[in-house]
Nucleic acid binder design. Structure first.
Lengths: 151, 151
DNA sequence: TTCATTAGGACCAAATGAGTCCTATATAGG
DNA sequence: CCTATATAGGACTCATTTGGTCCTAATGAA
């Protein structure tokens, strides 16, 4: 399903903080203090990022976390899917899922994957670097409407 | 926040069912039976659609619901926002919201709205008609990758 | 050995969500 | 005017999810 929980949001905040000094080893505690996110939550979220190869970790004294990915090549979709699982708009559109409860009666099977694909693409087109230092517009103007809705 | 609950999914199923015979008045009960969605849930969801001007309702005997929008001009974003509220990727990016808890420390304020905009645009580009009878590709090929992820 | 630090769970309380149900209101038809 | 049929709008319940905490094991530097 299409969702983004608070912890994913917090992961971006932590990543943004880490990207201020890439290559540096930072402890969970330090990141918690820098961002204001509760220590235990910060620790939990860092483990997820580590398990998904976005960070490397070193245990023990002088240990901590380091950015393990190239921020200009890592899309925010990667981060989102690390926390939320594969992004689909509905249960039906999840890859590998054959059918949901109402699958036999429902009419809208075939289109969802295309729509999910479009959303996925929008998220894939934004890198971590864009997110933090939004210099290059990774999103082409034609996709972004600055007009009415979120003015 | 970015999310889509089951009830929104079910709303699309109900809408798809109604679109088979636009202009017809259908009762909640009939729609429930046709789709397999529990009657009370169907009723609830129809009320939301009605309140958002996507359907018109007639009370009393011979009453029911009718499609009130042009399916080829109504985007699925309209339906999603009817149920989920304004679509934003994070709390920060919600229009009108000044700041979240971590706002002062967090680095990624300015970019979120653009990203949300891109997702919103992807959803806005698909109409109800596309969804049900997916004839015209409302999503331009460049946005839809058919390749790896949801094969 | 000791202390700092991550790994990986189990655990809990609060919030959220799906689904139900009840009462009020409106309408067609006899 | 009465009755049966529908929607309107909530309140309510139960299960699940989620944010957050905590505990124990493993690891590494000094």
């Amino acid at each position: 399903m299409l969702r983004m929980r608070r912890i994913t949001d917090q992961a971006f905040i932590v990543l943004a903080e880490m990207l201020r000094e890439p290559r540096t080893v930072t402890t969970a505690r330090a990141l918690s203090e820098a961002t204001g996110i509760p220590p235990a939550t910060t620790a939990k979220l860092l483990k997820v990022l580590q398990r998904n190869q976005l960070l490397t970790s070193t245990r023990g004294a002088e240990g901590g976390y380091t950015i393990a990915c190239n921020p200009s090549e890592t899309s925010i979709l990667t981060v989102i899917e690390a926390f939320e699982g594969p992004l689909g708009l509905t249960e039906c559109s999840l890859p590998g899922l054959i059918g949901c409860d109402t699958h036999d009666t429902c009419q809208l099977g075939p289109r969802w994957p295309a729509i999910s694909g479009a959303v996925r693409e929008a998220l894939r087109s934004v890198t971590l670097l864009d997110l933090v230092y939004g210099s290059t517009p990774a999103i082409r103007p034609s996709h972004v409407h600055r007009s009415t809705a979120h003015g």
